[in-house]
């Protein structure tokens, strides 16, 4: 009895999480333009999606920005976390706290401040400013993820590597990097998803000639939800499912 209740509760939680997505996926195959009634199976929304040039362009732009910003943030963030762990320098604690502040600060504040920053620098908003903005808000997540793993390490590991003849670089390459890999992948994954679906910061930091998917969808939705968007969302859901699965398998391999 108790066991059944427990499973029931668990099922409720998961249904709550996944039913909306499931409905969206189902409707992406619904042969009806407006209605919420089931009118029959069709793949036409998917073909329309592929044919929609501007939407596909925004999609590709989004993937490029997400990939570039997450990779940059991961490299910078990993090095940053390593520096926080390995070296003692004045202001270390203050700097680490500021990393948290960036992470906690509301997107709207960040968007506006970055926009002002770019204007002061005289940079025209577009792909580059968008990329810089995304790297900025992804970076703290990588630092925090990697640092939490690295601070669990036995400090002697570094000493051992040096004692056995490794230079600082060899130690980082052969010891730190492999040991940190699960955290690095997690940080990268987090950055990638954060960048891919960011609306607020992107709204302020991209220009009129560089459209990305979340903003495009946002503007499209104002005219009502088209089934094409359902199809697009279903594709993106599949994409994230694949990424998470791959990441899970890779980190499992590394353990």
């Amino acid at each position: 009895m108790k066991k059944t209740l427990r499973y029931l509760y668990l099922a409720c939680v998961y249904l709550f999480l996944y039913i909306p997505i499931l409905i969206l996926v189902i409707y992406s195959f619904n042969d009806s333009k407006y209605s919420t009634n089931w009118q029959g199976f069709t793949l036409s929304w998917y073909t329309q999606l592929i044919a929609d040039g501007p939407l596909m362009e925004a999609f590709v732009n989004s993937l490029v920005i997400a990939f570039a910003s997450s990779v940059s943030a991961t490299i910078l963030g990993t090095l940053g976390a390593f520096a926080f762990y390995r070296y003692r320098f004045p202001g270390r604690k203050v700097m680490y706290t500021f990393i948290y502040i960036v992470m906690m600060s509301p997107d709207i504040v960040m968007g506006i401040s970055l926009l002002m920053f770019f204007i002061i620098l005289g940079m025209e908003t577009g792909a580059l400013t968008l990329l810089l903005a995304h790297i900025t808000f992804c970076l703290p997540f990588v630092v925090v993820t990697v640092f939490s793993r690295i601070s669990g390490f036995d400090r002697n590991i570094i000493d051992v590597a040096k004692d056995l003849g490794a230079t600082e670089l060899q130690m980082f390459r052969h010891i730190m990097l492999p040991m940190l890999m699960p955290a690095i992948i997690a940080g990268w994954l987090l950055s990638f998803t954060l960048s891919l679906d960011d609306v607020v910061v992107s709204f302020f930091t991209t220009g009129p000639y560089f459209e990305i998917l979340p903003l495009k969808i946002y503007s499209m939705v104002r005219l009502g939800i088209k089934p094409e968007i359902n199809a697009l969302s279903a594709v993106m859901f599949l994409l994230s499912l694949i990424t998470v699965t791959v990441a899970h398998l890779v980190t499992k391999e590394n353990r």
């Binding site: 036995d154 002697n156 590991i157 000493d159 051992v160 590597a161 040096k162 004692d163 056995l164 003849g165 490794a166 230079t167 010891i175 040991m179």
Partner: peptide
Amino acid sequence: PPNKRNVNTVFQSYALF
């Protein structure tokens, strides 16, 4: 530097990789 010295250390915590 330690990597250029002809000594090696066994640490208390072993610190195996």
